[in-house]
Simulated assay, not measured.
Amino acid sequence: MPLPFLTADRAFDAADDVALPFDDRERWRRPYRPGPWRVGVAALVLLVASFVMLSAVVIALSGEMSAGAACLGVGVVVIAMALRLLRMGVWVSARGLRHTGFLITRTTPWAQVVSVRTVQQPVRWLGLPRTVQGQALLLVRRGRPQENVPPLLTTHGADFLGRVTAFDRAADTVEAWADEYGTR
């Protein structure tokens, strides 16, 4: 079963010299692959979910149907959390830029985007409170103050920790989408 949200389109591998290698630009796409940290954590969460689902079957077979159903519900929630973790990131299309978090998704139409730029600043290490010096991709919107705006991507996030070249490529691609569609 193909999972299209796990991988970026193969067009990036084939067309390194083209900034926007897509034919169908109306479809939401993540312009980079999820990083090993994100995929590893999701795999561990799915492993926990498999144990929870197995325990639901054992509990249900022992005759406690309500407890088995509750355990099954917990397993389904854990699987949904793992899938949401894999969907987190920045998505682009001709309609705008979408920043998907664990609980909240923010979509910004290109008409509201002033600029997308890479800056050197303290960034969170794997989303934890500890900060380190790194690069961040920032979105500047029309009519919105820039204080406390979370970065779209960072070099020390779950997708790019230890993959500076992948961060540069993803940041350049998002900036290219902003340059093409943000000026209209």
Rank of each mutant, 00 (worst) to 15 (best):
L138V: 09
A170C: 11
G157K: 01
F22H: 04
P31K: 09
L20K: 00
P150A: 09
V114P: 02
R98I: 06
P4D: 00
V174D: 02
E175Q: 15
R87N: 09
T131Q: 14
Q120F: 13
V123S: 12
D9T: 12
R87L: 11
L103E: 05
T183V: 12
V174T: 03
I104R: 15
A178V: 02
E180S: 00
S50P: 04
M53D: 09
I104N: 13
P129Q: 13
R38E: 06
V132C: 08
S50F: 11
R27I: 09
R117P: 04
L54V: 08
L126P: 08
A11Y: 08
R98G: 06
A166V: 05
L126I: 08
D179L: 04
E64L: 12
V123D: 10
L86M: 14
A60V: 03
H99G: 06
T107K: 13
T154E: 09
A166C: 08
R163C: 04
V116C: 04
M53F: 10
A56E: 02
D13Y: 11
Q120T: 14
T131V: 14
R84F: 05
H99I: 06
L72G: 13
R142F: 08
A60N: 05
A15T: 06
M88A: 11
R141W: 03
L3Q: 11
G73Y: 03
V149A: 10
W177G: 01
F12V: 04
G101Q: 04
F51T: 07
A80K: 07
E147R: 12
G35A: 03
L6Y: 07
S55M: 15
W110I: 01
E26D: 13
E180N: 01
R10K: 10
A70F: 15
W110L: 01
A176D: 08
L46G: 05
I59M: 13
P129N: 12
V39G: 09
L153P: 10
A136H: 00
G40K: 01
W37H: 12
V48A: 14
D159L: 02
F12P: 01
A69G: 08
L20I: 15
